[in-house]
Amino acid sequence: MKKEGSVPQPETEPGIATAEQGFVILDGPDGVAVTMTPEAASLTGHSLMSAARLAHEQASAGNR
């Protein structure tokens, strides 16, 4: 077991998305393995971008 224990930590490495047979496969981070329709993948992508922007703002506000 790692020194810091096994409580899941926020991932610092991005997942890798690829297209396969008309679907989007998201591999990682940390064992994530999801297959999505292109539509679901697009919406997920937009949602991730939106949440990432908000999280940046939260982190900036927390540092002030």
Binding site: T18, E20, Q21, F23, I25, A33, T35
Partner: peptide
């Protein structure tokens, strides 16, 4: 393995 057939194929 809890994956889709598309994923397994790859």
């Amino acid at each position: 393995c809890g994956l889709t057939t598309v994923h397994i194929n790859r």
